[in-house]
């Protein structure tokens, strides 16, 4: 079925392959691109090529980087003795927005999920062990997602690090969103927050 001119069909197909974009959205974006100025489109296409050419993953922590090392690994003011372990580079952005963490990161590039064919070998777990052996690290904070796959990955790393008995391994606490109403919290989060309550 070819309703539109072929180049337009190709563009709709390509856009439709992107995550979170269905056929209807792909069509809308394609028509939008058809209508805007040529300069705007070439800026977008340059940006797409640039990101592939210039951005790679940090050799040390697997964050996105413009050179061999990412900005955080290159920053001498960051603490060298604490590493925060996350699933995806986007989790780093979330933690950075807090401004509360001054250490460095390690991106696993996913979580253990046999159903999707992801085991520890597919993750940057071995690289984490190498870092711990070679860098002077005192604490590992495991910040994987609070779902079953994230918990499995956290437990795996904690067990793997048992042999390094000088290192403190911690897990991100789970609790209530700040500034929200207790009334709106779902029962699981509230239940966990109750279990992890602290003395005043």
């Amino acid at each position: 079925m070819s309703t539109y001119a072929r180049p337009l069909e190709v563009l709709i197909d390509e856009l439709g392959r992107l995550p979170g974009i269905g056929p209807k959205s792909a069509q809308r974006i394609a028509f939008h691109l058809l209508n805007v100025d040529r300069v705007d489109v070439s800026r977008l296409s340059e940006a797409l090529i640039d990101v592939k050419d210039k951005v790679s993953f940090c050799e040390r922590c697997f964050n996105v980087a413009e050179g061999p090392l990412c900005e955080i690994c290159n920053d001498p003011s960051r603490d060298h003795d604490v590493i925060c372990v996350v699933e995806e580079p986007k989790d780093i952005a979330a933690l950075e927005r807090t401004g509360a963490f001054r250490g460095r990161y390690h991106v696993l590039m996913g979580a253990i999920n046999p159903l999707e064919g992801i085991g520890p070998e597919q993750l940057k777990v071995k690289e984490l062990a190498t870092r711990i052996a070679s860098e002077d690290i005192e604490e590992i904070i495991i910040c994987t997602n609070p779902n079953l796959e994230g918990e499995t990955t956290a437990a795996y790393i904690a067990r793997m690090l048992k042999s390094f008995d000088m290192i403190k391994v911690t897990r991100l606490a789970s609790g209530l969103p700040v500034g929200g109403d207790l009334d709106y919290a779902d029962e699981l989060t509230l239940g966990r927050a109750l279990e992890g309550r602290s003395a005043l």
Partner: peptide, 27 residues
Amino acid sequence: QRNTLLKQAKGRLDDAAELTLDVYDTQ
């Protein structure tokens, strides 16, 4: 997840799979 891991292991466990299975056993 544990059944999938057992299937993928095809009767043999390397170190990583064994440690993963330990985690699943606990959970």
